[in-house]
Amino acid sequence: MVGEVVFKGPCAAGPITVQIQGNVTANEDPSAYTLGAWFMIQDVSNVIVTGGGTLDGKGASVWKYDDGGTPMAVSLVMERVSFGKMNGLFFVNSMGFHSKITDSHDVVVDALTITAPATSPNTDGIHLSNATNVNITNSVIGTGDDCVSIGQGAVNVLVSGVTCGPGHGISVGSLGKRDNELNVSGVKVIHCKMSSTSNGARIKTYSETPELQATGITFQDITMDHVANPIIIDQHYHSSKTKDSNVKISDVHFIDIKGTTTTPAAIQLDCSATHPCESVQLSNINLQPAGGVTALTATCANAKTTVTGTTTPPMPRLCS
């Protein structure tokens, strides 16, 4: 058992390798984490975090205190890291997010296994914030929140070969909750599978947000297995439907998405009336009902959409 651990640079030598081996368990007292993280890798270039070990965050002891306000400790944070790697680790039951990459660039994340119950609050698998040139590959993630959440300031992000479930799917956002957020661009989510998740391929923004842009976003070759809300743009996330988002979403592609859904609304494009979505493409979509659902619908509001190939269920004409 260890409490808060900080590896802080700058460091003159490199590459630096941090090996986490065996089973490492967290201090169950949340007040022990003054930086909001259990393991913090900070201000370091050319660092590798590996070792095949397990980080057990003992989250079950604190989830009952989660009020949706103050975040619980993240199991492992890379902050102001450049040319970093994280691979071959196991994360279990983080108090808050399992891992976070923030204010960093050129980071590769590979072969992680992340596990927490579907009921655990705010236990995102991997969260990105103000992160550029990040690759997340070949990982298995099941949590109580987003498997991967791609937040403000994310630029040139690849998510590939991720199996997600349980959880809330793979999301761009949420965006616009705070002032001074940065634009998002160049996000590719490809060759992934969602299983029994509450959302699939999702973009989410709050209402009454600062002016922001989210552009160049692709979800491609995604398999849905008993997924609710498999394709969704939600610009009224946790917000009133009567107030609009100032996040401008454009150049979005949903391509080669297939599988089954447990909700009738298979495709939901709910965009802002004041900042409508532009250049939204749906191509070769094949979603079928499951879990007692008998018919599927596709809905669209304030989205300029093009459809190519076969799309099931079909999009309404007002979106074309």
Rank of each mutant, 00 (worst) to 15 (best):
K258C: 02
P289A: 05
T274H: 01
I255A: 02
K248Q: 15
T261E: 07
L296C: 10
P289V: 08
E278L: 10
D251L: 03
I257V: 12
H253Q: 14
S240H: 06
L296K: 10
T263R: 13
T297A: 12
V252I: 12
K248V: 01
D251I: 00
S283F: 01
T242L: 15
N246M: 09
Y237W: 10
T262E: 06
V280N: 02
V247I: 08
K258W: 09
D234F: 02
E278M: 08
N284L: 03
L287K: 11
D244H: 08
A295G: 02
Q281R: 09
I233S: 09
P289Q: 07
S240K: 13
C271L: 03
A273W: 04
T242E: 15
S245C: 11
V293Q: 01
D270G: 05
I249G: 06
T274Q: 10
T261G: 10
S283A: 14
I285K: 00
Q235I: 02
A266N: 02
A298T: 11
I267H: 01
C271Q: 06
S283P: 00
S239V: 05
S240R: 12
T294C: 03
N284M: 00
N284R: 11
A273C: 01
G291R: 12
T294Q: 07
A290P: 11
K241D: 14
A298D: 09
A295D: 05
D270Q: 13
I267C: 02
D270P: 01
A265H: 08
T274D: 06
N286H: 09
D244K: 00
P289M: 10
D270S: 10
S272W: 13
I267D: 02
F254M: 07
Q268N: 08
A273T: 10
G291Q: 10
Q235N: 14
Q288H: 03
C277V: 03
T263W: 07
Y237F: 13
G259P: 09
I249K: 07
G259F: 07
T260F: 01
H275Y: 13
K243Y: 11
L282N: 00
L282H: 03
T242H: 09
V252C: 04
V280P: 04
K243V: 11
T261L: 05
I249C: 04
V293K: 05
L296T: 05
G291D: 04
A265P: 02
I257G: 01
A290L: 06
E278H: 12
Q268G: 07
D244N: 11
T294M: 03
